[in-house]
Design a binder for these strands. Structure first.
Length: 794
RNA sequence: GCCGAAGUGGCGGAACUGGCAGACGCGCCGGACUCAAAAUCCGGUUCCCUUCGGGGAGUGUGGGUUCAAGUCCCACCUUCGGCACCA
């Protein structure tokens, strides 16, 4: 008997799969009828900043198990791979070490592709795409034009988080504790012209999850997105500022507390501020403007100044002093508030500091209004609507909705990204590059180092072009796009990756999409997952595709941590698969990463247990070769081992399909193997070995394939998934547990078809049980069919 | 502060609908094979007591429901994650 040599086996079968294009799938031709069972399996694409680490190995191996499982269950499976290959790290590496970001990126991609192929993942490599390739980004530009024409991509001056180290704008979801999430430098506030996607106009759509039948998103993820969008219902109310002859609108969710307003606050950036002539106000605004949003938010005490003007409360005519304070934010609501210190924590803090009156207008216990004029005594809930209605009649207010969600700032003053296809013309303004002139190629530049302006602007030959509209001198947009734009539609390109007429074909995209099962980290909930949903909703309205959600099912793998924090290149705590693949083989690596624990929980990386997995594969090898010596059973004998094999089929299938649990199937196959090794001459030994090999195939496809061949069969990857015979899952006898007052006192093997009263009398007659019954009367006997009898005496 | 998830042997974890707690694996202990080691195989391994038959305790803590609770309910503790001047 020869030894298990993982490296020989793995190279052999990888070559066979490649030669036979085992995991490639064709799109249907025109008029070809769609099979009922088609499955689009996708895991979040990697960012090629280095090589793969254990987090990637977990993610893609999980997707691989699902891919094999679905394929063998008769599904046509699309399982592509690509690279999110634009972005800062490659550019920073180029600045640091020299070389071109493209070369660095492509070198990394090559290395990762080698790693992926070594791990034997069942990927359709004919569909590989990379975001930085012209064939891809020209369609990113094409899609940008659709957004621009629909008025959803626009340019505006906006306060932004500026990272002085990366010399670029940082989206507010990537500012953590006031620092740039990438490099840790504290961000600064700046007012800059930026490109925005009007995602806020899809806020309500994004609150709806229009999932197809069978779709499922984790509740947790939906909650994170809902909180992020932060829809609040309330009212906008107009306050009169006599001194300035102006009406100022406030947004509030608590119109019922309107009678409790004792002062009024506007944000330092509020347009009204410019009209107030007051030195203190001017000084305050200047000081505040220089501070970042984060600094302002972490102040221990509230700051602000009185403006000298007053706002009239429309409900009772009271004149309220107007303050400027930075605890009111210009980009939420209207940038102005009515302050109700009696019922709002922040207003109370401000009132206490500035010695302003605090008035209670709601009886918290009864939930009714007090000291509120005509509304005194009304229930707060009802008063809300009534007060707004009264204001509306007088033209001083209306119901309103506000969102926490902000528009998506997607321009970056950096080199390594998709150019924005826009030309500025003195006469025509902001002009989109016509579709037929795409792509706008990313030009070469001398120096990638950011100098506050985008590196593209330094290539003057590229920069200066005739205006597409009037032909006069124009200037190209020199900013590039956020990489989240690239990744918001990559899953649509996979269905039709070589299309040179369109980003994708409508028939192909409707055939495969939405993605059946998407696997990736929960950390992308408010970024990538939200942006992708926004894209799909827009493209659906544009008639480019026929579905409303990109991902039918979403699963978040836990992250692999080392030293208590998530493994990542930027943290520098990475462990890659290579040395373990060298030592134990890809199959052991794959089985081990999934055997470590539940896939949705974080796990601390350790290779302590991989020996056990390697042992398991060697035992499987030996036991199977031994079983292969035995003749095939023409009819399966009914032995305990045969039943165990059927039980294992059932368990593994249910765990993968219904519970999406990947570690317990391995344990189940180990159990089967243990029983086989205890009973090597059982007449069902060969069947047990075949079953174990077949069931482990999605996890360890190489060794499974080799053993399958040695069992005299071929192409396990295309073999139908085994089926558990229900008759073999039933047992004629079972071990009856006998309890007295809930404590186990005996267990006996009994026939499965005994009636309840028979089981009770058997229980009573057990000598061990009688010792505990002690002549006392059995008051009650509880029978759980197929499991236990509980005799109750007290 | 608000919202959410999780706490089970020395370790990773299992227990699907309330019904045998600790499957499977790691580690450790003992044994076989060997000149020896590796590899492999066999046995043991929650804790405490034991006359070796067995008995008792036990799933973060305290209470409750139930014939029966890791699982359900209430309160609390700890850890992790999300949001955090969002009016």
């Amino acid at each position: 008997m020869d030894r298990y040599e993982p490296h020989e086996i793995e190279a052999k079968w990888q070559a066979v799969w490649e030669a036979e294009k085992a995991f490639y799938v064709a799109n249907p031709g025109p008029g070809e009828s769609a099979p009922e069972r088609r499955w689009y399996q996708l895991e979040m694409l990697p960012y090629p900043s280095g090589t793969l680490h254990m987090g990637h190995v977990l993610n893609y191996t999980m997707g691989d198990v699902v891919t094999h499982f679905r394929r063998r269950n008769g599904w046509q499976v699309l399982r592509p791979m690509g690279f999110d290959s634009f972005g800062l790290p490659a550019e920073n590496a180029a600045i640091r070490e020299g070389g071109h970001p493209r070369e660095i990126t492509e070198r990394n991609i090559e290395a990762i592709r080698v790693q992926m192929k070594r791990l034997g993942w069942a990927i359709d490599w004919d569909r590989e795409i990379s975001a930085h390739e012209v064939d891809y980004y020209r369609w990113t530009q094409w899609l940008f034009l659709r957004f621009f024409e629909a008025g959803l991509a626009y340019r505006a001056a906006a306060p932004v988080n500026w990272c002085p180290n990366d010399q670029t704008v940082v989206a507010h979801e990537y500012v953590v504790d006031g620092k740039c999430d990438r490099c840790g430098t504290p961000v600064e506030a700046r007012n800059l012209e930026q490109w925005f996607m009007r995602i806020t106009s899809y806020a309500d759509d994004l609150l709806q999850f229009d999932l197809p039948e069978g779709g499922h998103w984790p509740e947790r993820t939906k909650t994170i997105q809902r909180n992020w969008i932060g829809r609040s219902e309330g009212a906008e109310i107009l306050f009169r500022v006599d001194e300035l002859d102006a009406d100022v609108s406030v947004f509030t969710t608590r119109p019922d507390t309107l009678h409790g307003a004792t002062f009024f606050v506007i944000a330092p950036e509020h347009p009204l501020v410019e009209r107030i002539e007051n030195e203190d106000v001017g000084a305050y605004v200047r000081v505040t403007a220089a501070r970042s949003g984060e600094e302002r938010a972490t102040d221990d005490e509230k700051t602000g100044v009185f403006t000298g003007v007053h706002a009239t409360n429309p409900v009772n005519g009271e004149r309220l002093p107007v303050y400027v304070a930075d605890y009111v934010l210009m980009d939420y609501g209207t940038g102005a508030i009515m302050a109700v210190p009696g019922h709002d924590e922040r207003d109370r803090e401000f009132a206490e500091r500035f010695d302003l009156p605090i008035r209670t207008v709601i009886d918290e216990e009864r939930g009714t209004l007090v000291d509120s004029g005509d509304f005194t005594g009304a229930q707060a809930d009802e008063a809300k609507a009534k007060i707004v209605e009264q204001l509306r009649e007088r033209g001083r207010g209306a119901p309103a909705v506000s969102y926490r969600l902000r528009d998506w700032s997607f321009s970056r003053q950096r080199y390594w990204g998709c150019p924005i296809p826009i030309v500025y013309c003195d006469d025509c303004g902001t002009v989109p590059v016509p579709e037929q002139d795409l792509p706008v190629l990313l030009p070469e530049v001398e120096d990638y180092r950011p100098k506050g302006v985008a590196p593209l602007a330094s290539n003057t030959e590229w920069l200066h072009v005739p205006c597409p509209k009037c032909g006069k001198d124009g200037r190209r947009e020199a900013d590039t796009m956020d990489t989240f734009v690239d990744s918001s539609w990559y899953f649509l390109r996979y269905v039709d990756p070589r299309n040179d007429q369109a980003p994708f074909d409508r028939f192909a995209v409707d055939y495969w999409c939405p993605v059946s099962q998407y696997i990736g980290g929960i950390d992308h909930s408010t970024g990538h997952l939200l942006y992708s949903r926004f894209f799909v909703k827009f493209l659906n309205e544009q008639g480019l595709l026929g579905f409303r959600e990109p991902f039918a099912r979403v699963f978040h793998q836990g992250w692999v941590q080392m030293g208590g924090s998530k493994m990542s290149k930027s943290r520098g705590n990475v462990a890659g698969p290579d040395h373990l693949v060298d030592q134990y083989g890809a199959d052991a690596m794959r089985v081990y990463i999934l055997f470590m624990g539940p896939a949705d929980q974080n796990m601390e990386w350790s290779d302590d247990g991989i020996d056990g997995v390697a042992r398991f594969l060697r035992r499987l090898w030996r036991a199977t070769l031994e079983a292969a010596e035995r003749p095939s059973e023409t009819e399966l004998p009914d032995t305990p081992l045969a039943r165990k094999a059927h039980w294992t089929i059932d368990r593994v299938s249910k765990d993968i399909e219904q519970r999406f649990q990947f570690h317990t199937p391995i344990a189940a196959v180990m159990e089967l193997l243990n029983e086989l090794m205890q009973a090597p001459s059982d007449p069902a030994a060969r069947f047990a070995a075949e079953t174990a090999v077949s069931l482990i195939q999605p996890y360890a496809p190489h060794v499974a394939e080799e053993l399958w061949e040695r069992l005299g069969r071929s192409r396990l990857w295309a073999e139908p998934w085994p089926h558990a015979d229900p008759a073999m899952l039933e047992r004629d006898t079972f071990e009856l547990v006998i309890q007295v007052n809930g404590r186990v006192r005996d267990r006996v093997e009994v026939s499965a078809d005994l009636p309840d009263d028979e089981l009770v009398s058997m229980a009573k007659s057990s000598p061990k049980v009688q010792a505990f019954l002690d002549d006392t009367e059995v008051r009650q006997a509880i029978v759980v069919p197929g499991r236990l009898v509980n005799l109750v005496t007290n």
